[in-house]
């Protein structure tokens, strides 16, 4: 059952990703990307990471993509434009090749360090309490650095707008 669901959602994710980069209109691409987020959330849920699944939908599908959509609508982009759109095939092939090349060493490193993961999750795995505890103890520094980075980006965005307004 779980394997079947995995292939179902993985398949949906792959097909929608392809549709996303192949679509002519930015809004269609955005809708496909939302679908990909959902499929990924389902995969997280299959891995017993319910918190991550909920956050995936809440943050990526619910917040970030809504902003994307807002910008696409504000600029009223009907079709892809510009230099990148004309050499689309080249850009896409290069992107896929680069990502694949990066993924292989990354995966090897990840398995080398921890060994293959066991299929049986520990009791509290993926619960809000467990993830929260890890975030605020073992991974406190990366967590704080990430929040500082986000804050810096926010301040930077506001500063850019302020410069333009003057």
């Amino acid at each position: 059952m779980e394997t079947m669901l995995f292939y179902l959602f993985a398949g949906v994710a792959v097909i929608l990703s392809l549709a996303m980069i192949a679509a002519k209109k930015p809004v269609t691409s955005a809708v496909c990307l939302v679908g990909v987020m959902f499929a990924l959330a389902a995969l997280f849920a299959l891995l017993h990471a319910h918190l991550i699944a909920a956050l995936q939908i809440l943050v990526y599908a619910g917040a970030i993509m809504v902003l994307f959509m807002f910008v696409i609508m504000l600029l009223n982009l009907r079709e892809k434009e510009g230099l990148a759109a004309r050499h689309q095939i080249v850009a896409q092939a290069a992107g896929v090749a680069l990502l694949g090349a990066l993924l292989i060493p990354f995966m090897t490193l990840a398995t080398l360090e921890k060994g293959p993961l066991s299929a049986i999750a520990p009791e509290r795995f993926g619960t809000t309490a467990a993830v929260g505890e890890l975030l605020y103890t073992e991974y406190l520094l990366p967590f704080e650095i990430a929040s500082a980075l986000l804050l810096a980006a926010l301040v930077g965005a506001v500063a850019l707008v302020k410069i333009r307004m003057r």
């Binding site: 809708v31 319910h50 909920a54 956050l55 939908i57 809440l58 599908a61 917040a63 809000t128």
Partner: peptide, 26 residues
């Protein structure tokens, strides 16, 4: 009975934005 029930409601209600936005655009 989800461990993250409250987050689930917020996640799902954030999705309902799309129906409205896409309706307006399309």
């Amino acid at each position: 009975d989800l461990d993250v029930g409250l987050l689930f409601v917020f996640a799902i209600s954030s999705i309902s934005t799309y129906g409205v936005v896409i309706a307006g655009w399309a």
